Amino acid sequence: MKLGVIAIQGDVSEHVEALEKALEQRGEKAEIVTIKHKGIVPGCDALVLPGGESTTLGKLLIREGIADEIRDMNEACKPIMGTCAGLILLATEGDEQVRKTHQHLLGLMDTRVNRNAFGRQRDSFEFQLELPFLDTPYNAVFIRAPGIVEAGKDVTILASIDDMIVAAEQENILALAFHPELTDDLRVHQYFLDKLF
């Protein structure tokens, strides 16, 4: 079993550590690999697209030849989790800001995103989020967070804040506007691993 974390920028080591701890909790073993170049994604059984600067991430995924490999992985219905910028990249459509900056999107999830739905870095916050797969609220960390403003019929909305969708699922894809890797609560990573084990 091999788990990949896109390592071009963002909270890479935090996701690796969270996955390691979650695997240890459940008594499972898997190799966790960080990905900066093409050729590694095809050997992975699951993939995490972490936060970062989405425009830069999109360009580098194309330049490094990783974007098409992620699309192929999705075609094979392997689990993919996108957090923050990862949620943006998974979308089929973006807001005016996404269009204006010619933001590259992978187009894997039938969603339209607002890149800065909750404001700038100084507007970062934490929120007790109710998620249907958890018994108790999850302390979600939002940093310059995006949001989903529209979702297709095949998308399951898992959580919203006011009218903004902040967690959603479509078949093998889990998209989160928040950063589960920045908390000691491993339940979201466990939910993602449930798709494998």
Rank of each mutant, 00 (worst) to 15 (best):
R122H: 07
D123K: 09
S124Y: 15
F125V: 12
F127G: 04
Q128H: 06
Q128C: 05
L129D: 01
L129M: 15
E130A: 12
E130C: 05
L131Q: 10
L131R: 12
P132M: 11
F133R: 11
L134W: 04
T136C: 02
A140K: 07
V141T: 15
F142D: 08
I143M: 13
R144N: 04
A145D: 02
P146Q: 08
G147M: 04
I148F: 05
V149M: 15
E150V: 08
E150R: 15
D154V: 08
V155C: 13
I157R: 06
I157W: 06
I157E: 06
I161T: 11
I161S: 09
D162W: 04
M164Y: 04
I165C: 12
V166M: 05
A168R: 01
E169K: 15
E169L: 02
Q170L: 10
Q170W: 11
E171H: 14
N172A: 12
N172H: 15
L174M: 14
A175H: 01
A175E: 02
L176S: 03
A177C: 00
F178P: 01
H179G: 11
P180A: 09
P180M: 08
E181W: 04
E181L: 02
E181G: 02
L182K: 14
T183N: 00
D184H: 07
D185A: 00
V188E: 04
V188R: 00
F192T: 08
L193W: 08
L196V: 11
